[in-house]
């Protein structure tokens, strides 16, 4: 088999939350495999467990039962240090609210994960400039976040997510706070990165433009996977989504 290795493997994941005396099962046994270089969107209404699953993939939360493997590392086996390392080196995060660190310049934001990874200053600076160049903000490296527009901040966030050559980029509603045109630019940029750098991109989104570029769309409903659609199937059913 010449299949690319799976970068995320989820088997039998169950997640319970205790709310007072009752236990709420948010994820009811999820099996999922995501291959390296895939562009995957997770869709689902709020309360469906979408965010919980998403956090699980990001190593931000641990399952109550079952296991989550990221790059063949079982995250439930990791201690706090190793989890931090995983977040630093293997996963890049992109947030709906950009979350650029306000007190730092664009370049400092991009190089921060490299500082944590122990990369020497000069090398980090050089790499940071390269990444800013890729997202088209090379000239604005000295700008503080408040001097950048929403779209530009999200570009800085994308450059920051790429800082340590992660295997996965997790994007939580990356276009949620952007206008249509800017959102489209961000989506194009993400798509380009997944193609050129072979980064796996996993995003939680409601944005239909996002679905158009996804290799697969995973629909979550009531803590289970309702269906997984490939892009080819998706283009047919897109009309239906719009009708809903």
């Amino acid at each position: 088999m010449n299949q690319p290795a799976s970068i995320v493997r989820i088997s039998g994941v169950i997640k319970d939350f205790t709310m007072g005396k009752t236990i709420v099962q948010v994820l009811k046994g999820i099996d999922l495999e995501i291959k390296a270089g895939e562009y995957v969107s997770i869709m689902g209404p709020s309360g469906s467990g979408k965010t919980t699953l998403f956090n699980m993939i990001g190593g931000l939360d641990k399952p109550s039962a079952g296991s989550v493997f990221i790059d063949e590392i079982d995250i439930s086996q990791l201690d706090a240090y190793e989890l931090a390392w995983l977040r630093c080196r293997k996963i890049g995060y992109i947030f709906q609210t950009f979350n650029i660190i306000q007190v730092m310049t664009a370049l400092e934001n991009v190089t921060l994960p490299m500082v944590f990874a122990g990369i020497p200053d000069d090398e980090a600076r050089e790499r940071g400039m390269e990444l800013l160049d890729i997202v088209g903000l090379k000239k604005r490296f000295l700008h503080k976040p408040f001097e950048l527009s929403g779209g530009q901040q999200q570009r800085v966030a994308i450059a920051r997510a790429l800082a340590n050559d992660p295997a996965i980029i997790l994007a939580d509603e990356p276009t949620g706070n952007l206008d249509l045109a800017t959102g489209e630019e961000i989506i194009t940029l993400l798509k380009m990165l997944s193609r050129d750098k072979e980064v796996t991109i996993i995003s939680a989104t409601h944005d239909l433009k996002m679905l158009n570029v996804s290799d697969r769309v995973i629909w979550i409903s009531d803590g289970k996977i309702e269906k997984i659609e490939k892009r080819e199937e998706l283009s047919i059913s897109l009309g239906q989504i719009g009708d809903k």
Binding site: A80, A84, R87, Y93, V103, P113, F116
Partner: peptide
């Protein structure tokens, strides 16, 4: 809070 959470997502430890 958000800044701290972001730093942790980027790999910061509690003691940082």
């Amino acid at each position: 809070f958000r800044e701290i959470g972001t730093m942790k997502c980027l790999g910061a430890l509690d003691r940082f």
